[in-house]
Design a protein around this nucleic acid. Structure first.
Length: 874
RNA sequence: GCGGACGUGGCGGAACCGGUAGACGCCGGAGACUUAAAAUCUCCUGCCCCUCGGGGCGUGCGGGUUCGAGUCCCGCCGUCCGCACCA
C-alpha cells in the first residue's frame, strides 16, 4: 500500500474507467428520479481558466452527490462556439474562425477531462455546427410564423473603417475599440424577437423562482421595468389661445387669465418653408403621476421626437440645440453632472383639464425618445429633474401634494417632494390621497377621451441581427417581389460558407461571390439571402433543451425534453444575470406559446458563483508583473489589490500545470474550500498546498485501514462518540452540498478527519473511514476511487450509495449548558439532554464560580433555556 | 441619484429561530522526528491586564429593545455590485 496518493498516476486511470463504463451517462430509463444539473457552457476562447474550474467543480460535486443519492443525473457539457473572438482571431492570425474554434474546443475538452468531471460526454455539441444551428434556424422560423419575429429599422453603432457594426461595449469614448474611428449611428433594417409580448409573464414568473438569488430576480425586475400610469394627449394650442403665466408662480385656479399677450411672431419658429403646417395637432405623453397634473408647468419632448425634428427644419437654433444634445458622453459621471437643458419652441400646449390653460413646449435634453412616448409633462414640485429645469428657465413651481395639511402652503425648495400625501392646489382633486387622485384622473381621462391608463415597459424587443460571419445564418431570403421569405424547411440548415475572406473589412457573407445569391422560394426570381447572423445569445437560449433531447430530425423531442426540464440547478457567473437568463426564459415561454414545449421556466434553481481572484504586482513604473516576475524582479515591487484574474493585470493562473503538479482532487478541494461559493475565492499557493495535504491525510487514513486487512480487525469495541460524530457529519455534509454550501461541507469533512486521526482503532473507526471516503467522493473522486479499491470494496465508489445518517445517533445524550450571570458567561456544565429546568437551575447555583459572583445573594430571576443555558439575574 | 448586498481575529470564513462568538482552513509560534533539510506529527495562537486562580474588552461607529444582541429596531460611516436623465 503506497504511503502517498499519487494523482499523476491515478487520475487518468479512473477517468479512463469512468469513460469506458459510461458511468456518467444519463439513462432516462425512468427507474430513478431525475436531476438535471447544468453549468453555463463555456465559450471556447482557447484554454480553460481557473474560473471555469471553480464553476464546473461546483456543479460536479452536486451531480456526483445526486448520483450517489439515487438520482438519474443529467450533467452535460457543450460549447457556446459562435462569436466575435473567432473573427478577431481570423483577422489577426489568419486562421479560419471555424478552425480556431474547433481547435480551442479540443484543447479545452481535454483540459476539462483532466479535472475528472462527471459529465455525460455523449451529449456534447458545439453551437457552431450545422447540426445545432440548423435546428435553431427551424425554431427561428417557427417563431417567425407565429408572429414573434419581425423586421424594423433600427440604429446601430457603425464603424466606418472596419465597416462593421459594433456592440455598445465595443464603443469606447465614441470610437471603435479596434479601429479608433469615430463611430456613426446608422439605421439598418434588422430582425427583432417580440420579447415585450412576454414582459408581463417574464415579470410574474420571477415570483415563482424561489430558488433564484433575490439579487438576480431584482435585476431582472428592474430590467423589465414595469411602470403603470397615464398616457394622455396634449393638443397644440391654436394661435390666439396663448396663455402666459411665466415666472409668476401659478396657484390654484390660475387659468391663464390676464398677463401680457405674447407676440406670437417673436416666438413662433421661423418656418419659412411651411414646416409648421406639417406638425401634428397633438402628441402623447406618459406619466406615472397623473395626480400631479395640476402642478404641470411645462411640456417637453425628446430631441429625437418627430415634432422636434419637424420644427428643426428651417429653425437653425433648434437644429443646433438638437445636435448639441446628441453629443456629450453617456457615461454615468457625465449624466450625473449633465445640466438639464431645454429649447423653448414657442409653441404652447393645452392643459387637458383646463382648455384655458396652456403650457410652454420645450425640447429637453433629458427626455428619452425610446421610453414611454418620448414626451413628458413637467411637474417641478414633485420631480427633481423637472424642478432643476424649472428653476433654470424660471417656470412656475406649484406644490400639489402635501404630506400634511400644515405643509400645504410650504414652498418647494431645492428638493422636489416625491413622498406620499394628499392633494392641494388641485381643484377637484384637493384632499384626495395621491393614489386616489391617480385613479380619479385616469378614470376622468378615459371618460373624456383624452387619455388612458396604461403600462409602460423598460424592456425592449430583442434585436437579434448581427452583421457578422461567425454566427447562425438567419434563414430568410429577400425577394424584390415577395419581400422576406422563410427558407423552406427542407433546405435547412442554411450552412455558413467555408471559403471566406477576412482580408477586406466588413461582413464576409455580404462579399461572398455566390452564397447570398439564391432563387426566391416563392416566385423563383433571383433573390438574395439574408446575410445577417443571429446574436449568439440565441444559441444559448435553448441549448439546455438540446442537451436533454437531441434527435437528428428536429430540435428536440418534446416528451423527452419535458422529462428532464426544467434544469434543477443551473450554475454560472452573475454577469449573465440579465441578458442570457432573460432570453432563455423568454425562449422557453415562446416555445410554450407556440405549443412546442410545456415548460414555463427553464431553470428552477439558479446559483451565481463568485470569481477567482489573485494578488497583483506592479513595478515602480506601474507595469503589471506576474507573481513569478515579481519574485524575480530586481527592483522594488508593489503588492497590489487582490483582483479578478485578467490578462491585462497579469495575475491569471493556468489550471493545467497546477493539476499536473497536485492532481485534480487537490485543485477541486481548493475550489470548494474556505470561501462561500457565491463570493470571490482568492487563489493562493498556500491554499492549494493545504488542499494537497488534506488529500494525503485522507489517503493515509484509508491506507492504514486497508493495511489492517479489510475489516477483520477487532478493536476495543464500539466507539459511540465517534459514531455520533460520523452520523452528524453524514447529515451535515449532505445538507450542505444540497445547499451548495461547499465551504461548510469541506469544514465538516475536516472535522471528521481530525476526529478520526485522534480516535483509537475500533470497528467504529474502521466503518467511519469508509464513510469518510464516501462523503468525500463527490469532491475528491479520484482519491475516493483509489481508496475504495484499496479497502477492497466492490465496484466504483461513483456507483456507491450515499451513506444514510442514523437518526438515533444524531441525538446527543449529554449537552453542555452555559451558565450566565446577568447575561455574562461564567461557567459551563454538562447535563443529560432534556434535563428538567429545576435540575439545571440547581446545578447552576451549585457552581463555585457562580457562587463567588453572586456573593451569597440569591438571584432575582432565573432564566433557563433547556439544553442551552441558565441565566441568573442578580 | 435609485436599487441591492455586505462589514466578525493577521487572513478566508463559521455561528440553527435572539442563547457558550471565532467551528474549519491559511498564516504564525513552540516542540517531536532527522546528521540536516523537506515531509509528517503534537501543542499554542482574538486583544489587553494578571498575584497564573483569574479579570477586563471585543462582531464598522452611536443609540435602543431584551434576562441575554454578530443576529432585531433607529441613526451614521465604509466597501462592493447592479441600473442609470425611465417621466
Amino acid at each position: 500500500m503506497a504511503a502517498r496518493f499519487n494523482p499523476l498516476e491515478a487520475d487518468a486511470r479512473w477517468q479512463k474507467l469512468w469513460e469506458e463504463r459510461g458511468t456518467f451517462h444519463a439513462s432516462g430509463d425512468g427507474a430513478r428520479p431525475r436531476a438535471y444539473i447544468l453549468e453555463m457552457f463555456p465559450y471556447p476562447s482557447g484554454r480553460i481558466h481557473i474560473g471555469h474550474v471553480r464553476n464546473y467543480t461546483m456543479g460536479d460535486v452536486l451531480a456526483r452527490y445526486k448520483r450517489m443519492d439515487g438520482f438519474d443525473v443529467l450533467h452535460p457539457m457543450g460549447w457556446d462556439a459562435f462569436g466575435m473572438p473567432a473573427e478577431n482571431a481570423a483577422m489577426e492570425k489568419k486562421v479560419h474562425p471555424g478552425d480556431w474554434t474547433r481547435s480551442n474546443i479540443d484543447t479545452m475538452r481535454a483540459q476539462l477531462k483532466l479535472i475528472g468531471l462527471a459529465i455525460d460526454w455523449s451529449r456534447e455539441f458545439a453551437t457552431c455546427e450545422p447540426d445545432y444551428y440548423g435546428h435553431e434556424q427551424a425554431l427561428f422560423l417557427d417563431l417567425y410564423e407565429a408572429g414573434l419575429v419581425y423586421r424594423k429599422q433600427s440604429e446601430v453603432n457603425w464603424d466606418p473603417v472596419d465597416m462593421t457594426v459594433l456592440a455598445n461595449e465595443q464603443v469606447i469614448d465614441g470610437r471603435g475599440w479596434r479601429s479608433g474611428a469615430q463611430v456613426e449611428r446608422r439605421k439598418l433594417s434588422q430582425w427583432f424577437l417580440r420579447i415585450t409580448a412576454f414582459a408581463d409573464e417574464l415579470l410574474d414568473g420571477l415570483g415563482e423562482l424561489d430558488q433564484w438569488p433575490d439579487k438576480v430576480r431584482l435585476m431582472q425586475e428592474n430590467w423589465i421595468g414595469k411602470s403603470q400610469g397615464l398616457r394622455f394627449r396634449f393638443d397644440l394650442a391654436s394661435e390666439g389661445k396663448e396663455s402666459p403665466s411665466t415666472g409668476s408662480g401659478r396657484t390654484e385656479g390660475g387659468s391663464g387669465v390676464g398677463g401680457e399677450a405674447l407676440d406670437a411672431e417673436a416666438v413662433r419658429p421661423r418656418t419659412g418653408s411651411g414646416a409648421v403646417e406639417a406638425l401634428p395637432s397633438s402628441f402623447e405623453v406618459f406619466t406615472t403621476r397623473p395626480d400631479t397634473i395640476f402642478g404641470a408647468s411645462f411640456a417637453a419632448i425628446s430631441p429625437d421626437h418627430p415634432i422636434a425634428l419637424a420644427l428643426a427644419e428651417g429653425n437653425a437654433p433648434l437644429a443646433d440645440f438638437i445636435a448639441e444634445c446628441k453629443q456629450g458622453g453617456t457615461t454615468a459621471a457625465e449624466l450625473e453632472t449633465a445640466e438639464k437643458k431645454g429649447f423653448d419652441t414657442g409653441i404652447r400646449v393645452v392643459h387637458p383639464l383646463d382648455s384655458e390653460w396652456t403650457l410652454p413646449l420645450y425640447v429637453a435634453n433629458f427626455v428619452l425618445m425610446d421610453y414611454g412616448t418620448g414626451a413628458i409633462f413637467g411637474c417641478p414640485a414633485h420631480d427633481q429633474r423637472d424642478l432643476d429645469f424649472a428653476r433654470k428657465y424660471g417656470l412656475p413651481v406649484t406644490r400639489v401634494v402635501a404630506p400634511s395639511p400644515e405643509e400645504a402652503a410650504e414652498p418647494i425648495g431645492d428638493e422636489a417632494y416625491s413622498g406620499p400625501g394628499r392633494l392641494v392646489n388641485s381643484r377637484f382633486l384637493d384632499g384626495l390621497t395621491a393614489e386616489d387622485a391617480i385613479r380619479d384622473v385616469i378614470a376622468r381621462a378615459e371618460a373624456e377621451g383624452w387619455g388612458e391608463g396604461t403600462i409602460v415597459w423598460r424592456l425592449r424587443d430583442w434585436g437579434v441581427s448581427r452583421q457578422r460571419y461567425w454566427g447562425t445564418p438567419i434563414p430568410i431570403i429577400h425577394c424584390e417581389a415577395c419581400g422576406p421569405v422563410p427558407v423552406p424547411r427542407d433546405q435547412l440548415p442554411v450552412v455558413l460558407p467555408e471559403d471566406i475572406d477576412f482580408e477586406t473589412p466588413g461582413n464576409p457573407l455580404d462579399r461572398h461571390p455566390t452564397w447570398s445569391k439564391v432563387d426566391c422560394p416563392d416566385c423563383g426570381a433571383q433573390a438574395r439571402r439574408e446575410t445577417d447572423t443571429l446574436d449568439t445569445f440565441v444559441d444559448s437560449s435553448w441549448y439546455f433543451i438540446r442537451f436533454a433531447s437531441q434527435p437528428d430530425d428536429s430540435p428536440f423531442d418534446r416528451a423527452e425534453a419535458e422529462s428532464w426540464l426544467p434544469v434543477d440547478q443551473y450554475i454560472g457567473g452573475v454577469e449573465h444575470a440579465i441578458l442570457h437568463l432573460l432570453y432563455a426564459r423568454f425562449w422557453t415561454r415562446a416555445l410554450k406559446r407556440i405549443g412546442r414545449l410545456d415548460v414555463d421556466e427553464p431553470f428552477s434553481g439558479l446559483f451565481t458563483q463568485g470569481m477567482v481572484t489573485h494578488v497583483t504586482f506592479q513595478d515602480p513604473e506601474g507595469r503589471w508583473l506576474t507573481p513569478e516576475e515579481a519574485e524575480a524582479h530586481p527592483g522594488p515591487v508593489t503588492r497590489g489589490r487582490v483582483e479578478k484574474m485578467s490578462k491585462s493585470k497579469r495575475n491569471t493562473v493556468d489550471p493545467e500545470p497546477i493539476v499536473d503538479q497536485y492532481g485534480a482532487d487537490a485543485v477541486r478541494w481548493f475550489m470548494l474550500s474556505d470561501s462561500p461559493p457565491e463570493r470571490d475565492l482568492e487563489w493562493s499557493e498556500a491554499g492549494i498546498q493545504g488542499s494537497w495535504r488534506f488529500v494525503q491525510r485522507i489517503w493515509r487514513l484509508a491506507a492504514e485501514e486497508a493495511g489492517r486487512g479489510s475489516s477483520t480487525w477487532l478493536g476495543d469495541g464500539e466507539d459511540l462518540a465517534l459514531d455520533r460524530k460520523v452520523h452528524r457529519t453524514i447529515a451535515a455534509v449532505g445538507a450542505n452540498i444540497e445547499a451548495l454550501a461547499f465551504n461548510k461541507a469541506v469544514a465538516n469533512l475536516y472535522e471528521l478527519t481530525n476526529a478520526l486521526e485522534k480516535a483509537a482503532p475500533s470497528p467504529s473507526r474502521s466503518r467511519a473511514v469508509e464513510i469518510l471516503i464516501r462523503l468525500a467522493a463527490p469532491m475528491v473522486p479520484h482519491l475516493a476511487e483509489e481508496a475504495w479499491a484499496a479497502l477492497g470494496r466492490e465496484g466504483l465508489i461513483a456507483d456507491a450509495e450515499w451513506p444514510a445518517a442514523d437518526p438515533a445517533l444524531l441525538v446527543e445524550e449529554e449537552v453542555t449548558i452555559a451558565v450566565q450571570v446577568n447575561g455574562k458567561l461564567r461557567d459551563t456544565l454538562t447535563a443529560p439532554k432534556g434535563a428538567a429546568k429545576e435540575l439545571l437551575e440547581e446545578m447552576a447555583l451549585a457552581s463555585d464560580k457562580v457562587a463567588r459572583i453572586l456573593d451569597g445573594k440569591p438571584p432575582r430571576k432565573v432564566i433557563v433555556v433547556p439544553d442551552r443555558l441558565v441565566n441568573l439575574v442578580a
